[in-house]
């Protein structure tokens, strides 16, 4: 029967048995109900044009809004941010793996997580910037941890005015690998590398030392747990902490069964579907490129601190042989908007 072909996809874990059960009713009625019954077939219509004589209130309102927009707007096209947002949202939809073993199984859970940036600017008072990722229930917490990109991982500590070329060797991500998730009274510490420390220990000790009423906080290994193992509350603020004190609030906004139209390639998860567009700080000289250096007590700069892109910084502060000119302290600068 034709129905079986549909069912084969197997994404009806909710109740696949009843689909087969009432299959007998379908066949004789099938021909009668078609979407055609709902569309008038008399002429081809352009969905962009709102019909003149429509009685629908929605359309009347929309028409007015669109007309007003046409009057006021000069260039009517999607802006960069809108295009980006749409692409982020839809880039993974419907992707299939090359290798069938990488196929996401039916009945898999899909979690939507909002990961907030630890920025506390005044202008973000009303809505905090965050990124949204999709993870599978069968994925390990470490897979999410590795996918979270944060500027504090890329910070470079130290003053490099005398040897600017050596800066990239000191990225924080490689130096300080510890991190933890906090879900429901349990700290999930990343202990994959020997140099990882138990960041939660101080917190647990603090909590226990004065019996502060936080109950029994536990500490476990992040790499031992998948999302399916956790018991979570939707909408509850949890925590991801790395680099010692870079704290990201994590909120689970949705859990649902995987759908046929979702990305079914396991390797692509966690999928980033939304990202906040942060303003970048530009180079003081060219005003074009994102700043990579910041200087203090700079005899050549009009401001303190002053920001430069890599090219301008080197051109201004060093001669052809790479010798330092003037007095200044130079620090590598990582802009929060670097992931835009």
């Amino acid at each position: 029967m034709e129905w079986e072909a549909y069912v084969e996809g197997g994404y009806h874990t909710f109740c696949s048995e009843d689909i087969k059960h009432d299959g007998r009713h379908g066949t004789d009625l099938k021909s009668r109900k078609r979407i055609g019954m709902l569309m008038s077939s008399d002429k081809e219509e352009d969905p962009d044009v709102i019909p003149e004589d429509s009685s629908l209130l929605t359309l009347q309102i929309r028409k007015k809004a669109l007309e007003k927009r046409e009057e006021t707007i000069i260039v009517d096209r999607a802006c960069r941010q809108e295009t980006l947002a749409y692409e982020m949202e839809s880039h993974a939809i419907g992707k299939r793996p090359d290798n069938p073993t990488d196929q996401v199984e039916a009945g898999e859970l899909l979690l939507t997580l909002n990961i907030f940036y630890p920025v506390i600017f005044q202008k973000h008072k009303d809505h905090k910037p965050y990124q949204t990722v999709l993870v599978l229930g069968s994925q390990k917490l470490t897979e999410l941890r590795d996918s979270i990109s944060c500027v504090s991982d890329l910070q470079i500590g130290g003053e490099f005015s005398s040897q600017p070329d050596q800066a990239p060797e000191h990225i924080s991500k490689d130096l300080y690998k510890s991190a933890f998730f906090y879900f429901e009274g349990i700290f999930y510490n990343d202990r994959r590398y020997p140099e990882c420390r138990d960041l939660s220990r101080t917190i647990i000790e603090w909590s226990e030392s004065h019996d502060r009423g936080y109950g029994n906080l536990q500490s476990v290994k992040m790499e031992d747990y998948t999302f399916n193992d956790l018991s979570l509350k939707i909408g509850f603020p949890y925590l991801f902490c790395h680099q010692g004190n870079c704290e990201h609030i994590i909120i689970i906004t949705d859990i649902r069964l995987i759908h046929h139209d979702d990305c079914l390639d396991k390797n692509l998860y966690p999928v980033l579907i939304k990202k906040h567009w942060l303003c970048t700080r530009k180079c003081f000289v060219c005003k074009m490129y994102t700043a990579r250096w910041v200087t203090n007590e700079d005899s050549l700069a009009p401001e303190d601190p002053c920001f430069f892109c890599d090219v301008c910084f080197r051109m201004l502060h060093y001669d052809a042989e790479g010798n330092k000119l003037g007095d200044f302290l130079a620090y590598p600068y990582v802009d929060p908007g670097i992931f835009n």
């Binding site: 019954m37 709902l38 569309m39 008038s40 219509e45 969905p47 962009d48 044009v49 709102i50 019909p51 429509s54 009685s55 629908l56 929605t58 359309l59 929309r62 028409k63 669109l66 999607a78 809108e82 947002a85 749409y86 949202e89 839809s90």
Partner: peptide, 19 residues
């Protein structure tokens, strides 16, 4: 059909907004 209800989705709307 009387109301041509399928036209509720009509109008010049870009993909992101339409979703």
């Amino acid at each position: 059909r009387e109301r041509r209800f399928h036209t509720v989705f009509y109008g010049r709307i870009r993909a992101l907004e339409r979703n």
